[in-house]
C-alpha cells in the first residue's frame, strides 16, 4: 500500500533520510522508532507529500505521495498538533469533514460520532484557545479519524494525554483493526507501541536499522525498549541511563 523506494532526503549537507526502502501492507499496524533526529518525522512528511524526497520515490496505492488524490482516505495527527485558536473543536472537525467530502447532515452525524468517541462532546463548542494540551490532542486525533480513513498516520498521538486518554486511544485503535485500517505510528512511548503495533522499523541517523514484526525482534524476557537500545547502541549511539 505504502512504498518507499531508495528514499533519500537531504537538507543542505545534512542527510535526514538515507536510502530508505520499505513497504507497509494494507491493514498493518506499523511503528517508526528512533531517537530524536533519526528521520522519522521527515519520512512521515514525505508520505504526506509535505516534503519531496531528494531522490527515490514514495507512493501510496501506486500514486506519488505529492498527488492530492493519494491523500484521499488519510487521517493525520501531527506532532505538536495545533488548532486555530478562534475555532471551536466542533468547527475544526466540521472543516475536516468538509475537506473529506462530507456535508450537511452526514457531516454533522460524523462530527458528533467523533466527539463522542474522543470524549469531547461536552467541550466541543468552546474556543480551542481554552483547551488543555490533552484536549487539543484529542481533537486532533478525532480529526484524523473523520471520514473513516484507510490510512492513519499518528505522530506522538498520546503526548499530553493522561493514562485514561492513552488507554482510550489504544482501545480506539484496536477497534479500528476490524476495518482494515493501516496505521503508521511515530512514538517514543515504546510500551504503547508494543501494545498497539504489529511491526516496527528502528531508525537512526536517517537509516533503517531493522524492520520486522515485533514478535520476531523482541526475544523472550526482553522488551521493545531493550531491542531499541540494543540497535541504536550498535549503531554507535551512546545511551545514558540504560536500564532505569
Amino acid at each position: 500500500m505504502i512504498q518507499l523506494k531508495g528514499v533519500t532526503k537531504k537538507f543542505g549537507a545534512l542527510t535526514a533520510v538515507d536510502d530508505v526502502s520499505y513497504t507497509i501492507r494494507r491493514g498493518e499496524y506499523f511503528a517508526l522508532l528512533g531517537p530524536n533526529g533519526a528521520g522519522k518525522t521527515t519520512i512521515v512528511r514525505m508520505i504526506l507529500g509535505f516534503s519531496a524526497p531528494t531522490c527515490g520515490m514514495v507512493t501510496l496505492e501506486g500514486m506519488p505521495a505529492a498527488n492530492p488524490a493519494a491523500h484521499q482516505g488519510i487521517g493525520y495527527l501531527a506532532e505538536n498538533h495545533r488548532i486555530p485558536p478562534f475555532l471551536s473543536g466542533r468547527a475544526y472537525l466540521r472543516r475536516h469533514a468538509a475537506l473529506v467530502g462530507l456535508s450537511g447532515k452526514s457531516a454533522q452525524i460524523e462530527v458528533d460520532r467523533i466527539l463522542e468517541l474522543i470524549n469531547m462532546a461536552g467541550n466541543a463548542d468552546k474556543k480551542s484557545a481554552t483547551y488543555s494540551k490533552g484536549m487539543v490532542q484529542r481533537i486532533g486525533f478525532g480529526a484524523a479519524l473523520l471520514g473513516k480513513p484507510k490510512l492513519l498516520i499518528l505522530d506522538e498521538p498520546v503526548a499530553g494525554l493522561d493514562p485514561i486518554g492513552i488507554r482510550k486511544t489504544r482501545s480506539i485503535l484496536e477497534n479500528l483493526r476490524q476495518e482494515s485500517l493501516t496505521l503508521i505510528l511515530n512514538s517514543h512511548l515504546l510500551s504503547e507501541v508494543e501494545k498497539t503495533c504489529d511491526s516496527v522499523a528502528i531508525m537512526d541517523q536517517g537509516r533503517i536499522l531493522v524492520k520486522d514484526a515485533i514478535y520476531n525482534i523482541v526475544k523472550e524476557n526482553e522488551s521493545l525498549e531493550d531491542v531499541f537500545i540494543r540497535y541504536t547502541e550498535r549503531n554507535g549511539r551512546e545511551i545514558t541511563g540504560k536500564g532505569t
Binding site: 491523500h71 484521499q72 501531527a78 488548532i83 472543516r95 475536516h96 473529506v100
Partner: peptide, 18 residues
C-alpha cells in the same frame, strides 16, 4: 503555519494550488 491550518488543509485531498 503557526496555527496549524496549513497542515489541516494539505493533509487532506487538497492540492497546493487550491
Amino acid at each position: 503555519e503557526s496555527n496549524g491550518s496549513l497542515v489541516l488543509f494539505l493533509s487532506r485531498p487538497v492540492s497546493r494550488w487550491q
